[in-house]
């Protein structure tokens, strides 16, 4: 296995999405020799697809929290990407101060983020859900949280880009002409692990099944002897906790500044809606499709179009699903 460790660190551009960073490093590599003599265009495309899959796996880590909150609990948590950025900064603090491994730092952040989610749900429940008017007000509430979180991060940490250090940031595996930068590969694997773990938790444990039940039939849940509010509180805590890990992955993949979270709102919601609102498998597939499309567009056209892709996914998805689903969930 030829491993070319080219300790190159991506440098943030003004609008810095993972796809952008990737395209840039690949562009340079294309000049170096092609060991297998693969058709350069084919190699380019294959690389774009692989990079897209890795990127998609990361998107899934951001989206999984929304799949739980929005898909299962019907809570339109627009602020989730802001919590992901907050997670990234928490990880940065731990990494910067104590040299802690970013992923380990993310795991350490799980309990406080879980608690944050529990508290946030408590507030949301008291102010909106229990009053029954959660549509307009609830959305505006989360928008306010998104905004306040971002501003607080700017005030506390500053508007600069921050990076972390870890042994897997930099090295690059190269298998048969295909690049596997560890800075993308490790987050992708961690993301898949996390989603797999959540899936097991939801399908195998009592709490998990209660969460699934609350998303389908709150009455049946009461018959199981679990309180819907407490179950939703737990589930929402879980959903925010995933933001800690997603944040760690984010800052491994790319430098982070406070307002970067906004770029992921459209992507994450598109993935959740496209994936069928709360289905993990669907979400994972949708994330991969989005990642690969973004990566291909960035390679073939220009990386600056990448943010438009999610929108290009979201609108038709919404328009098509509108057809038969009036009155139901959507």
């Amino acid at each position: 296995m030829p491993i070319s460790a080219s300790f190159r660190r991506a440098i943030p551009a003004a609008s810095c999405s993972p796809a952008v960073v990737d395209k840039r490093s690949r562009g340079k590599r294309a000049w170096k020799g092609k060991p297998n003599g693969m058709d350069p265009l084919l190699e380019l495309l294959l690389n774009a697809v692989v990079a897209g899959l890795l990127l998609g796996a990361f998107y899934a880590a951001v989206a999984v929290g929304i799949a739980i909150a929005f898909g299962m609990l019907d809570i339109p948590n627009l602020a989730h990407p802001a919590f992901v950025v907050m997670g990234a900064f928490a990880v940065w603090l731990l990494n910067d101060a104590f040299g802690l491994d970013p992923i380990l730092a993310g795991i350490l952040c799980l309990p406080p983020f879980f608690l944050l989610g529990v508290l946030l749900y408590q507030a949301y429940y008291a102010c909106f859900e229990s009053r029954g008017d959660n549509a307009l007000q609830g959305l505006a509430f989360f928008f306010g949280i998104l905004f306040v979180t971002e501003v607080v991060l700017i005030l506390v940490i500053g508007a600069d880009y921050r990076t972390v250090a870890a042994p897997y940031i930099g090295p690059n595996w190269r298998i048969g002409g295909i690049d596997l930068p560890l800075r993308m590969l490790v987050p992708a694997l961690v993301s898949l692990l996390m989603i797999g773990g959540l899936h097991l938790l939801l399908t195998r444990s009592f709490i998990g099944r209660a969460i699934l039940a609350v998303s389908q039939d709150p009455l049946a849940l009461q018959l199981m002897g679990a309180s819907p509010v407490r179950t939703k509180r737990l589930a929402f805590g879980l959903s925010i906790a995933t933001a800690a890990i997603a944040g760690a992955l984010l800052i491994i993949i790319q430098p982070v500044e406070p307002s970067i979270g906004r770029e992921f709102i459209g992507r994450a919601f598109a993935v959740v809606v496209l994936g069928g609102m709360g289905s993990f498998v669907g979400m994972l597939m949708a994330a991969m499709v989005l990642g690969v499309t973004e990566s291909l567009v960035a390679t073939l056209f220009s990386p600056s179009w990448a943010p438009a892709i999610a929108f290009g996914f979201l609108l038709p998805t919404l328009a098509i699903r509108a057809g038969g689903l009036m009155g139901r969930k959507l």
Binding site: L78, E263, I265, G266, F269
Partner: peptide
């Protein structure tokens, strides 16, 4: 959500 994405 669509309007939010529109802005971006």
């Amino acid at each position: 959500i669509a309007t939010l994405a529109l802005a971006i």
